[in-house]
Design a protein around this nucleic acid. Structure first.
Length: 558
RNA sequence: GCCCCCAUAGCUCAGGGGAUAGAGCGUCUGCCUCCGGAGCAGAAGGCCGAAGGUUCGAAUCCUUCUGGGGGCACCA
């Protein structure tokens, strides 16, 4: 008996009650949405294993008191198999208590499913393109990108676990003038000249220059134009490789690396690029006009505060044009839903992107979704390029460790400002929530190893014996995991998984403290010990699955 | 000026209209002869920024205000 099954039974009972009272005039569905009949885990354990507010929702439309209605529902609900009791409490809650056996079967369900436990089909049928990071390949990733890398990757994972067809995608801005500035900066460094105006400063440019010279020793003997091109291309290749490696080391996997150059490349047969086509497609939709020699998109039709130029009067496309082409290309590749993860410093793009969807003939409310995340600060200091106190992703990783860094970035919602305390993250103690969770996992593994040595095996499974209060608390939390994953996917909030595994770890530690898996001294091994081993192993599996969704390791030992 | 986000314990942060608002850290008190004490049990700590509104019920939804962060290019 899991909460979803119980909710189904409850719905059937409520349907009967409503029919009895209404005599066929008006169904349940006309009074309350099916999804509003939900079971929640009460905060207070005295309120049972699961609680429903359905009576309070229906009392008014039915014209009865919530408690009276709750009593009527509770009588039937109390007779359900697997339900030990259904009691009315407070203003009209119905509090359910499950039989230990009915609750305990989840341990077996989990171990049968293994890594698949938690997967669900709530997002089945949706095709989602999820774009994040997309940093210019003109320098290393810094902390500003780090949060989106952690978050975006975990969002992709929970979406996939919920049955969505997802492509996580990195848009490489490798076209345009910033690449030339980048190339010029590297070439200048190779020549030993100072950084050109508007160029990229930084030690990494000098390092790249050295690497470029190593690859192309005759670089400086080439004509200037050619040298610039070679420097730019080699440095680009090296820098992009470094970015990819940094993300791989951070357990961030992109399905697609999309080069902006793809959009500008002319098709040799038609001599047209995807950007050319995109502008014409928007024009055909009726949202493009010409003014002052430039081509504009009427983004104000879709809530933008001013119209945007897509092709300048000098004939050069703006960045917006590439954005449009890229957006259309995502749709052409079969992705109905496009998610963009942007930092708060880019929120000005939101209207523009939504306008793009509208101008392309899509529904801006349904086909495009822009997630805005707040910036991260360290020790209270905001980190920005302007302030010159950028910290690189790879430095942070080496400093704090991938697990601690990913976890701390993943355990808060994206729109919540986040301050990292490096001292705290470096501490390998309980100061650091990730260790609390990882320790719980390591402990399940240790118990499992010790159990084997002590002759306790999963040879018997008697869930009705799991009657201790810490056991019913742990079982209830284990039952919740699939809906936590589904919720994280639906809301694009992977931090819910982090908070969940923290709670689960806490419940496990409490259980461990009061219930032994391995008998003391000369006591005999009983089915209770064997069944507890199932529970121990199931808990380890769920913590492992949860951490996996966050890209954090679940160590066997610490 | 216009737009977006935030405000909850001393600190860092959770809390999708429900019951007595939570966790970790920090402070204080207990618990290791036996499965990992990186743990557990307990104490203290709150006008959920302010004021209105919606609701049987608001930290949560709406409006206004205050305070903080960010953004408003024929840049990329």
């Amino acid at each position: 008996m899991n909460p979803d099954q119980l909710a189904d039974h409850l719905y059937a009972i409520v349907t009967r009650v409503v029919e009895r009272r209404r005599g066929g005039r008006g169904s349940v569905d006309s009074l309350v949405a099916r999804t509003d009949i939900r079971l929640e885990r009460p905060r207070n354990r005295d309120h049972g294993d699961w609680a429903s507010n359905v009576a309070m929702r229906l009392a008014k439309p039915l014209g009865v008191s919530p408690r009276e209605l709750a009593e009527e529902i509770a009588v039937d609900a109390g007779r359900l198999e697997g339900v030990a009791s259904a009691e009315v409490a407070g203003p009209g809650f119905i509090n359910f208590r499950l039989d230990a056996g009915a609750a305990g079967v989840v341990a077996k369900v989990i171990l049968d499913a293994g890594e698949a436990y938690g997967r669900n089909v709530t997002q089945a049928g949706s095709t989602i393109n999820l774009e994040f990071v997309s940093a210019n390949p003109t320098g290393p990733l810094h902390i500003g990108h780090t949060r989106w890398a952690a978050l975006g990757d975990s969002i992709a994972r929970v979406l996939k676990a919920s049955g969505a067809q997802v492509a996580s995608e990195y848009y490489i801005n490798d076209a345009g003038s910033q690449m030339d500035k980048f190339g010029a900066s590297v070439l200048a460094a190779a020549k030993g000249e100072p950084t050109p105006p508007d160029g990229y400063p930084g030690q990494y440019i000098a390092d790249l220059a050295a690497a470029v010279l190593e690859r192309e020793p005759d670089l400086l003997a080439l004509p200037d134009d050619e040298a610039l091109g070679r420097a730019r291309e080699i440095a680009y290749e090296l820098q992009l490789a470094e970015i990819r490696q940094a993300l791989r080391d951070f357990n961030v996997e992109f399905d697609v690396w999309f080069s902006e150059r793809t959009l500008h490349a002319k098709d040799p047969r038609t001599d047209r690029s995807l950007v050319d086509d995109a502008v014409e497609r928007l024009r055909a939709q009726g949202h493009v006009f010409d003014r002052d020699g430039a081509v504009w998109v009427r983004t104000t039709d879709f809530g933008d505060d001013k119209d945007r130029v897509i092709r300048r009067s000098n004939g050069v496309y703006t960045y917006f044009a590439a954005d449009a082409a890229y957006y259309l290309n995502k749709g052409d590749r079969g992705f109905r839903h496009k998610i963009y993860l942007l930092g708060a410093d880019h929120h000005g793009y939101v209207h523009r992107l939504r306008a793009l969807a509208g101008a392309a003939g899509d529904d801006p409310d349904r086909d495009i979704e822009v997630l805005i995340g707040q910036l991260v600060s360290i020790n209270g200091a905001k980190l920005s390029k302007r302030a010159g106190n950028i910290i690189e992703l790879t430095d942070l990783q080496r400093w704090l460790g991938t697990d601690a860094l990913r976890y701390s970035l993943s355990r808060s919602p994206a729109d919540s400002p986040l301050t990292l305390d490096p001292e705290l993250l470096r501490s390998h103690t309980n100061d650091n929530p990730v260790y609390y969770v990882q320790y719980a996992h390591a402990r399940t593994r240790s118990v499992s190893r010790n159990a084997q040595a002590a002759g306790v095996a999963r040879s018997a499974f008697a869930p009705e014996l799991l009657g201790h209060e810490t056991e019913s608390a742990l079982l209830g939390a284990l039952q919740e995991f699939p809906r936590i994953v589904a919720q994280a996917a639906e809301l694009r909030e992977p931090h819910r998984v982090a908070r969940y595994v923290e709670e689960l770890a806490g419940l496990y530690h409490k259980w461990y403290d009061s219930c032994r898996v391995i008998p003391l001294g000369e006591e005999p091994v009983t089915d209770l010990h064997r069944t507890r081993l199932w529970l121990n192993d199931a808990t380890g599996q769920v913590i492992r699955n949860g951490l996996g969704l966050l890209g954090v390791s679940a160590p066997e030992r610490m």
